[in-house]
Write a protein that binds this DNA or RNA. Structure first.
Lengths: 230, 230
DNA sequence: ACCTGAACACCGTTCAAGT
DNA sequence: ACCTGAACACCGTTCAAGT
């Protein structure tokens, strides 16, 4: 009789591939703080130590998780049918970045993991080579491509670092909570009383809503295009 | 006779202020992963539990650390003498952001801590009110100010999220390591063979070097100014 | 080759007890 | 009010042992 396993566990043998996929699923379902070696092992009805036969340690596990997410990005990007880079590099790159963002939205914890890797994952580097290729074929100098990669930073992969979550911050948009704020924060109070936030729900961890993300992305792409033709 | 304390420890009584300053110093000296309640207590020659009289828990400690760093930002920004916002909002904001960046460069671990706070620290919100004020007094609509805050994101405080550390990534700039790369990464290889990285040392964790940071910041500020006058 | 069980060196945090 | 000591519930990871 098969050994007792956690609910939903499969008695299939472990493998690096299966371990990494389960790690992504665990983070999706229970959050990044739940992704521990012990809890991951539980999903397979196995001791934590068994995982070390397929993954060197937790850092390597997280590297593998990045690999899996980048695989999803590649699959999503491959399904795109935008204009060729030679014709309109901005539109081509924009489509690619927004497609990558869709993947990040499915894994809200991913930006944090990407940011925690000290050296670049090979899959990320390959992705950036494609980004560079789009710009290069679009007529950008390598110098501009280089600066563009730095300027875009994590935006190239579809996420951007906000200073706080849009909902948790100073965005009550409520006149009641605005009163005490107006005294010490006159400009934010004035701004909030004039602006209506119309993008509820579409938050990506510490990242922009869709409209804000697109605004910032377009502003950067337009600025780069202006430099290209200057 | 005073109790045995760790090297350099002072027998002065604890206080929230002293605990927070010691936490910043510990992260500066030994890295963020060394900032644990136990090791922090050691600095005072005290048990970890004693810290809980001055700080609710570790999350509150990190909130306080953000507070301390923001205090340094405010001090640094206060010493600036740029043009008034009404005259040249771009120059005023640029100076403020670059001053904030100087503080972040002193605390390379700070961006990570800032990013880990789920809701905005009051000191950060006050800072952003000042940023909004500069733009507003410079003639920007509140709508533009709002989009600017989202677009700048963490850049407003002087740091930006790169996909990997500049040195650890695909920047060998060495013809030897470029050979095998050229096959799979044609565009990055081409770029690196043409571009000479000239900003060694000035890395900020997962952030740009100074020149790259200024390039990205200026590109965004110029784009915003163009929208303002449109 | 793969998995286990016990153990180690750490965490943050609680509780009751001391002064 | 402030600090302690022991303990609890977790971590990642090692090692020697099993099959």
């Amino acid at each position: 009789m098969a050994k007792r396993t956690a609910a939903g566990a499969e008695p299939v043998p472990l493998s690096r591939e299966r371990v990494l996929r389960a790690a992504v699923g665990l983070a999706d379902a229970a959050g990044l703080e739940s992704l521990t070696m012990r809890r991951l092992a539980e999903l397979f009805g196995v001791e934590a130590m068994s995982l070390y036969h397929h993954v060197a340690n937790k850092e390597a596990l997280l590297d593998g998780v990045v690999e899996v997410v980048m695989g999803e990005v590649r699959d999503t990007v491959a399904a795109l049918d935008g204009p060729p880079a030679e014709e309109d590099w901005r539109a081509a790159l924009r489509g690619k970045v927004l497609a990558a963002r869709q993947v990040m939205l499915r894994h809200p914890w991913a930006p944090q993991v990407f940011a925690s890797r000290r050296s670049a994952d090979p899959a990320v580097i390959r992705y950036l080579d494609e980004v560079a290729g789009i710009m290069r074929r679009g007529g950008c100098s390598y110098d501009l491509v280089h600066r563009a990669l730095h300027t875009l930073g994590s935006r190239a992969l579809g996420f951007a670092q906000e200073l706080f979550e849009p909902d948790g911050g100073p965005a009550p948009a409520d006149a009641d909570q605005l009163g005490p704020m107006a005294a010490e924060l006159p400009y934010l109070a004035g701004m909030l009383s004039e602006i209506a936030h119309e993008d509820p729900g579409s938050t990506l961890g510490w990242c922009d809503g869709q409209a804000e993300f697109e605004f910032g992305l377009d502003l950067i792409l337009d600025g780069l295009e202006r430099l290209r033709t200057a």
